[in-house]
Write a protein that binds this DNA or RNA. Structure first.
Lengths: 203, 203, 203, 203
DNA sequence: GATGAATGAGTCTTCATTCAT
DNA sequence: GATGAATGAAGACTCATTCAT
């Protein structure tokens, strides 16, 4: 019984690993379910026992990989001490940016196929399975500690993440308008500005 | 001779129109060249006389539509008078956002398929065929007139556009994290902050 | 399991038979994969399960048919007794020529599409799958038994076979420069001369 | 009038040249009429004013090229003196073999597409347009001068030419069973033997 | 005579999904 | 549960030929 379940888990994991390898090397578009099962050494019918179709395994793969990345980023950063909380947030973002710089293929796969549904789930979903609500929680703490005059934290975090994602994709993958090393200070500067608090009327 | 050329232009235009209609209603992925030519009442071979493949006509369509939109935005805005140049830039962006709000299908088609190569061409390419270098030129003027302490205008414009694009797509198409009407003030506020000038060292 | 395998063999064989029939009657050029599967009553996709493309099944067909022919020729001839070994070789060739005279379509298909790669495999490849290395072995025996002053058996056999092939094709298919019945004595006479041994310097 | 005719001739010649270039570099199969006219800078419709289809221009091209080659071979050889007529024939063949060695693409194009109809026309057709009946005439002279006991000159010449063609193609193009330099002495030796006269009964 | 735009039948190839074993 | 052979709809692309100008 347990052995059977282990076997199942093993098969599923093999499919995940193989799909990830093919998605990142050949591209999602050019990877057929056929390719995945052939490479994985698993029967084609078996694939359908675990996943609905190619995009099902892709979505789950993105959730897994991104989950792990954000968790890692938050954890690693909590070990260090910072002058202020904003620096801490920037360090989290920095960790993610650095990681993606070294894993272009992962970045490509994620960004090209990330749907907002998944995104939202990842960031705000309180389901502990995704371990990530911590990013938003972290952000709330930062605002409180720094006494930032931010009215709508969710939207501000959203703006920061959208900007970060766009810049990463453009500068890491396409080197446009400049490589990430050059873009990073500008990105961080922009984030700092966005954190300076809203003043919708006045300005 | 002139009649033939007219006929050619007509055929090409019919293909553009039909492709646009199908791309925006059925989606690019679900539109086959077969569908386009059937709907257009044109022979399949004729399609290949004008376009390399589906993505060729798609790219050209994006360039055309975006070109026109930006041109319109700049022109319409130049008719009004503004207290300051920043307001003028925001009005240009506002025009674009409003336009896309009313043309969700266009937004979807553009955003899902915009490659940076086209993007760059649209914004910076001095080729007058695209009429759009004016956006960047406009931006430079604004910086000068407002005496904004921006060191790297290209990067700042890039950040603003990436942010605007991301927010539009998310809020107009997915209503996430909120509808565009609610997001717009936040977006404009963010843009204002980004224009406040860089202070990379100090901060 | 066995039933499945039997079914597979059956499908493959049906494809071979149908392809052969169409290649020889309509010509290889004018036979589409469509035609083969329609005639065979098999799905198009199934064809690609067994063969890479039209030329893959053609090559395999040529190997099969030629293999069988040579094997038969050698076997049938071994039942008879001959005054000398040269007569035996001529009888093998005679068997092949006669067979091809009665199967013009096969001859046409083979000769028009025979690549030397296949040819070589058929004659010298020791892979018992092709059963035919016996032809070259036979030839070596003949040389030994008859004490023929042939320095380079491989080249001499090659010359004989090239000449035979050319003459067969011309005279059987095109009746040029004369029908095979008339050409055969001349061909055999030529082969006898070629076996008379090389004298490269002297002559 | 004369100028128009000249223009026509020029167009035709351009088509010949372009077709030859493409046939030999890309292969006949992979060359479309489209390719020829585009490369030649001539309208597609014009092609059909001169040729029925691709195979029409191909056949005519083969005749032209081969005609010239044989004519050259005979002429060049007539300038030299030989001990005997057989040496002279071998020299003609040698000239052709050498020429084809240096023009593999021509050899490929000719051999892969030579139909016996053309072949026959080239060798025996008394139409002086092809300049080549001389090869057969030459051969008859040789037989007479050397007093060769050849009963059927046409068939013997046919055998020699078929053998030569086959060997050239195999050894020059495919290097099988050996490069032409190695094969040539064997080929010439074989030809000498074939010229030794028939003795159908006796042997 | 020359042109070249238009045609559309024809061909290849892929691949998600099913289902009997 | 697992398998993998079979399916056939779907789609991309080519190209010889025609014919109005």
């Amino acid at each position: 019984m347990s052995k059977i379940n282990e076997n199942k888990k093993q098969k599923e994991q093999t499919l995940y690993n193989t799909a990830f390898k093919l998605f990142t090397t050949k591209g999602v578009q050019n990877t057929a379910i056929n390719d995945i099962v052939r490479e994985a050494g698993i029967a084609k019918g078996t694939f359908y026992l675990y996943f609905k179709d190619k995009y099902d395994i892709l979505d789950k793969l993105i959730i897994r990989k991104t989950s792990i990345l954000i968790k890692e980023a938050v954890e690693k950063t909590q070990l260090k001490t910072f002058e202020n909380s904003i620096d801490q947030l920037l360090e989290i973002i920095n960790y993610i940016v650095e990681y993606l710089s070294g894993n272009k293929l992962l970045l490509k796969m994620i960004y090209k196929n990330l749907s907002w549904g998944i995104y939202r789930k990842l960031l705000y979903d309180p389901d502990p399975a995704y371990h990530n609500h911590s990013l938003f929680q972290n952000f709330l703490q930062i605002i409180e500690q720094e006494n930032l005059p931010i009215e709508n934290p969710e939207i501000t975090l959203f703006l920061i993440l959208e900007l970060t994602g766009s810049v990463c994709y453009s500068s890491i993958i396409l080197q446009e308008p400049a490589p990430i090393e050059i873009m990073k200070p500008h990105l961080f500067d922009a984030i700092r500005k966005l954190l300076k608090g809203a003043n919708l009327q006045e300005q």
